[in-house]
Amino acid sequence: MPDRNVTLGNRRYGFGVSLFTEGMRYFAFWIVAAIVLAALAPIVVAQFRSIEISAWYFPAHAGKFFTAVIAGVFLFPMLPVCIAAGLTRRELATAMKVLGLLWSGALGALAVALFLAEHAMYRAFGWTHAIEQGPVDRPFESFGAVLEHSAWLPLTYLLYFVGGALIGVASYRWDLGWLIIVPVVPTVLFLQSAIDRTEVWGPDWFKRATEPAYEWGVAPALIATVAAIVVGAWAARRILLDTPIRAKQA
């Protein structure tokens, strides 16, 4: 996985890049499958009924949860592997930052590009390109409108990545560390509502808890999200730096 020419000075960055490229390679099939499915689904459905909603919306937003799982599920088992391979916790934290930025940026850019491509396809076929937003769907009338919605995705992915990393490292650090989901999950969902103003998936209380976020303007949402990412990343790093490696189970 790591570069064969690794040196001590650059290995934390090189390792982060390796994690990104290996992760992309590992999940390439599933990413391509999601893209193909989202492209074919409206064509098939159009044979039976009118198309009124974006198909790409679903995998693009599922990507947030996927990103959170990538961060959390990577950290939990890989922490002892990395320390055993002679990495410090600080270096691992830096590698995770590199991974988070690259993964969120790349997946976010892909999501934006495919929203725009889908809009072009929907226009060509004369379909309505819209997303779910509460009881009334939100139509995209132009490429600008598509961009206005989807440009948030890289930031949203990064927010979810940090949330996943925080849950992953806390779960490893403490037996009851997973309880950190209590502040993390509502915070992430609230901020997601604030920045993309789409209806949150999940139980009714999720929706009720995140409704006030719809009233936020762009600037407060952006500031709060960036602040949450910074604070979350700092907290995850702090927990990581103090984490002992668990004894192996017999």
Binding site: M1, P77, M78, A84, K248
Partner: peptide, 24 residues
Amino acid sequence: VREGGDFDDSENVRSALETGELRP
């Protein structure tokens, strides 16, 4: 090197060995 080693179990043996290259 602990009993059974510390590896990502989902990797193959070659990749597990390559992870060692984190050490210069």
